[in-house]
């Protein structure tokens, strides 16, 4: 059992990021004037989450790649 925890974290944040960013694009700008000082926080923060998620995924995949290249040295 070799679950790299960065994999679910990366996936979850990517999904969150996409959901928020897309919602930010289609939502009524009025809600941002009401709440978040006129900033489309859903779009902005969605992109931030997506970037973080993608970074985590990239790290997890790189580690998996490195493991596949090297013969296992313990266990």
């Amino acid at each position: 059992m070799n679950l790299d925890v960065r994999l679910p974290i990366g996936l979850m944040f990517s999904v969150f990021g996409v959901l928020l960013a897309v919602f930010g694009l289609v939502s009524d700008p009025q809600i941002y004037a009401e709440h978040s000082l006129g900033i489309n926080v859903n779009l902005d923060w969605g992109i931030v989450l997506l970037l973080f998620g993608a970074t985590m995924l990239a790290l997890a995949l790189r580690a998996r790649h490195a493991r596949a290249k090297q013969p296992p040295n313990h266990g």
């Binding site: 939502s27 809600i31 978040s36």
Partner: peptide, 11 residues
């Protein structure tokens, strides 16, 4: 409730 519009509120 004050700062987060629906969407971010869920987060």
């Amino acid at each position: 409730a004050h700062y987060f519009p629906t969407g971010l509120l869920g987060l």
